[in-house]
């Protein structure tokens, strides 16, 4: 087959477009969900994390400031969650962390509520005040139980 510059150009463009498509899939579509800065590592222990997963968003007043880095069981059989949030964030030491659900059937995320202290949380510290995930089954169970007592 005779060498043809046009054919070489077509193959070169094909390779470039193919690599661009792979890059688009990897970086844009498959990228991490939170693209902001991390650096401030905080820990929080919960009695119940429900459906919380690693990479779930961490939000202050509804604005995403970081993500859940890992979830594991600690020595006291509570769920120990590591949060990776923007290091520029100035959170008071008495801030609290709660597991919330976006909408009725949405994914779970961690909502941080700033406290009132002057002192700020630094990397590696523990968030003392936590609020576990709301379990619908437990809620219904309590409701049924309570209404049963009232009927007696």
């Amino acid at each position: 087959m005779k060498p043809s510059p046009w054919r070489d150009l077509a193959v070169g463009s094909f390779v470039l477009i193919g690599l661009a498509a792979i890059g688009y899939l990897s970086l844009q579509v498959g990228g991490v969900s939170y693209k902001g800065r991390g650096g401030l590592l905080l820990y929080a222990s919960f009695d119940e994390v429900g459906g919380l997963k690693a990479r779930a968003p961490v939000a202050v007043a509804g604005v995403t400031v970081g993500q859940v880095k890992s979830i594991r069981l600690d020595d006291f059989l509570r769920a120990r969650v590591t949060l990776d949030v923007d290091e520029a964030l100035e959170l008071p030491v008495d801030s609290s962390a709660g597991i919330r659900t976006a909408g009725l059937l949405g994914d779970q995320f961690i909502a941080l509520e700033p406290g009132a202290e002057e002192e700020l949380l630094v990397s590696g510290e523990e968030i003392a005040y936590t609020e576990s995930a709301l379990s619908i089954e437990r809620l219904i169970g309590r409701f049924v139980h309570d209404s049963g007592i009232e009927n007696d």
Binding site: F14, V15, G18, I22, L25
Partner: peptide
């Protein structure tokens, strides 16, 4: 060599 490129093109156009 061509299959991964064509696959990525297919997915991008389908998206």
């Amino acid at each position: 060599f061509a299959m991964p490129m064509l696959n990525a093109l297919f997915i991008v156009f389908a998206l």
